[in-house]
Amino acid sequence: MAAHPSGEPSWRWRRLVIFSVVGVAIWRLIVLEDNPDTTINLELVRGWLILVGLLVLGYTGLATVQDLLAMWRTGSALPYAPPPPPPADSQTGGQP
């Protein structure tokens, strides 16, 4: 995955997959809305709703896990921020 200038990973492909699956799920639910109430249609609707719920929870959960791992590895509360510049007097060792 490509990274932003700040170092944060890109979510372009995850968003593309999740939004397209949610779009298809919503379209299928709209199509099933006018069909007769049968056990099969009820199970299909339940399955699509579970799929959408899992995708949303996975989308946000993966972002949280990824950020927590980055914070743990870097030991910083802002793992994607550029590192601060060294102090100006670090080259001379503090001697005038």
Rank of each mutant, 00 (worst) to 15 (best):
L78R: 15
I50Q: 04
E33H: 12
W11S: 03
V24C: 04
N35Y: 05
V31W: 07
D67W: 12
S10Q: 06
A70W: 05
L42R: 09
G7Q: 00
A81W: 00
V45M: 11
A25M: 06
G53I: 03
P83Q: 14
L69Q: 13
R12N: 08
W13P: 02
I26M: 14
R14C: 09
I50F: 09
P5N: 03
L44F: 12
L68A: 07
L68G: 02
S6P: 01
Y59E: 09
I40F: 12
P84F: 08
T38M: 06
G7V: 00
P9M: 01
W27C: 14
A88V: 10
A88P: 07
I26D: 09
E33W: 08
V22W: 00
D67V: 13
A2W: 03
W27I: 12
L49A: 13
T38S: 13
L42M: 08
E33P: 00
Q66Y: 06
A63S: 14
T64Y: 14
D67G: 09
V45S: 06
A25F: 03
R73L: 10
V65E: 07
M1A: 10
A70I: 05
G58V: 12
I50A: 09
P83I: 09
S10F: 04
L44I: 10
G53F: 05
I50H: 04
G23P: 02
R14H: 11
T39H: 08
V31M: 06
P87T: 04
T92A: 15
G53L: 06
